[in-house]
Write a protein that binds this DNA or RNA. Structure first.
Lengths: 153, 153
DNA sequence: CTCTCTAGTCAGATTGTCTGTCTATATAGT
DNA sequence: ACTATATAGACAGACAATCTGACTAGAGAG
């Protein structure tokens, strides 16, 4: 329907990253709901994407997700109330608590991970597995660049 | 701080796309605010990302952004009130209106585009321009795959 | 000319995010 | 040890961005 315009107007890097990223979000959400996790909405995945295996502080999760600690606290409250995560006192810091996955939370994380792996395999099938492997590696390099702070050029 | 874990746990395709995508969103937002567009928030970019040059219907924008037409209408109201877009009657359909960029909206779009182009150039400088060009091309191919519907594998 | 579908809006509820404030604890400087 | 400052987290309230449901006007099929 819009093919001619799309061809005439090459897409910028923002759209090139946004479109497949949005596809991963949609796919994982569909698969997670299909697996029976009907009490979750897309926003509730944010904490999972930043939790370290040993557990993380709310403040740390908030920084990594680029949101306020109050907002992250709201999401963690929701997940804790439904048994996906738990808060435990941090033995190393009396002010702090560690947010950790429960058994239920780990099961959900496995479902999400499997969904992403299936999607990548599907893309590899359609793009060619060499191209997909190459893309994967280049994205890893780009992530390293993005995460390493540098003076703006 | 978390380097050992990150190395041990390879990132899934979701994170590999999310991290650079989020970087584009943050950078464009910073640059747009720095250019004096202080009445915009990240959500207001959504309509811009889907507007065709000749204008688009609210319904079409909503579909492309994967949100309801009411929500898209809310964002367009905001942008229209501040002079970034205008609604004109669609001569081809008496029910419909076309949402189009105004002069001010086109100026904003140029700022955003320039910001993305600078960011990609910065990445090319740090990643190597061959790698960046290759990544760009592979992402274009992936977008084509994502946009072409297919039976799920 | 009816029947059904579509484009857009109105109204209201809910979700997710923010700012501001507060308490308890940690940490650094004396 | 004592004080000053910084940090982790929570509470309260406001606002932003999204949703669902209901409606009007016009399009398009028969």
């Amino acid at each position: 329907m819009e093919t001619l315009h799309e061809l005439a107007q090459p897409r910028l890097i923002g759209a090139l990253l946004r479109i497949p990223f949005q596809a991963t979000v949609t796919r994982v959400y569909e698969d997670v709901v299909a697996a029976g996790y009907t009490d979750l909405r897309p926003a509730h995945f944010t904490p999972f994407q930043h939790l370290r295996p040993e557990g993380s502080h709310i403040t740390e999760l908030a920084e990594r997700a680029q949101m306020t600690k109050q907002s992250m606290g709201y999401l963690v409250d929701y997940l804790e109330a439904r048994g996906y995560v738990e808060r435990v006192l941090d033995p190393a810091d009396g002010r702090a608590k560690l947010v950790r996955l429960t058994t239920r939370g780990r099961a959900l994380a496995r479902v999400a991970r499997a969904s992403l792996e299936r999607l990548e395999a599907e893309w590899a099938r359609r793009l060619g597995s060499d191209s997909m492997a190459h893309l994967h590696r280049l994205l890893e390099e780009l992530v390293a660049v993005v995460e390493q702070p540098s003076a703006r050029g």
